[in-house]
Amino acid sequence: MPLPIAPLLGFLSDNLTKRRSVMPMSSRKTTRWAAGLDIPAGGETVLYTGLMYQIIPALTSSEKTMSLVQDSWVGQLLSFGRTVNRFVNLTSFMPPADRQEQKRYDQYLRNIVQLLRKAGVTEFGYLYGSELYTGALVRDLGVDDAFEQHARKVHKMLDRQGVRRVITVDPHTTDMLRNVYPKLVPGYNLEVKSYLEVLRESEARPKNRLESEAVIHDSCLYARYLDTVEQPRRLLEKAGVTARDPEFSGKMTFCCGGPVESLFPDKAGEIAGRRIKQLAEAGNDVVTMCPICLHNLEKAASGNGVSVRDISELLLQAYGG
């Protein structure tokens, strides 16, 4: 049956306009990763998670719902669902995320904070519950009105908080805040850097030499939208990790399939499978730097003898100490 794209888009954009995220989650869930890190609230420079690492584990459960949508009668009810969703947060009825997974993804954010501090970057805060999702998915799907409205909302919030500089943790948020927002929001003037760029500039020194190899899976956005190819490689090489490039790498990296996850989970899985094959030919230890890539490639890698890790994990082993 044809995919109910329209109701799904409506569903997502309604969520964004009414609940400030495509996958509305409680702020308790989105901020608990920071517990015990004593990150100051707010400030001119903030670490901006964009909620990406927090939302991804929840996706695992929503995907189940979506796959169901794609192949069954549920899809036909989605248009009805959209109407209901305007009044009731249907997302909260989705099966809860795997607690183990949630914890693991939270840990990546903790890794990043520790890496920055070890590199001597300590002057940054966090917006906690005020932080908003950037709306990247809704923009990708071409729901521009909802997205633009949301972007202005995000900017207003950042402005109110007095934020001048932002350190991001994932490429999608970086692209939105650095490339897309300035074109849409009048008066937008934020300095945006990913933590990989900040670490690279900080002259961080590794405490342990790892003497290992890793296959780098470049994120499409980092490589082609943000010109961030060299930074992760230099950071790994300095730590004694030999960076292996798969067949498609750097500027010519190959997508993990993630971007079509929300609409065509089957196609997304197929592409992830092809990517894993390319990566596996270069080695078994794969590192990613985007939560979407991580999530998709992990799924495709299961049973392939390939391990996929977030780059923060590897970097922390070397630079943490």
Partner: peptide
């Protein structure tokens, strides 16, 4: 709607 927006083509 299936495009990945990955820009490999670009």
């Amino acid at each position: 709607f299936s495009c990945l927006l990955c820009r490999l083509c670009e």
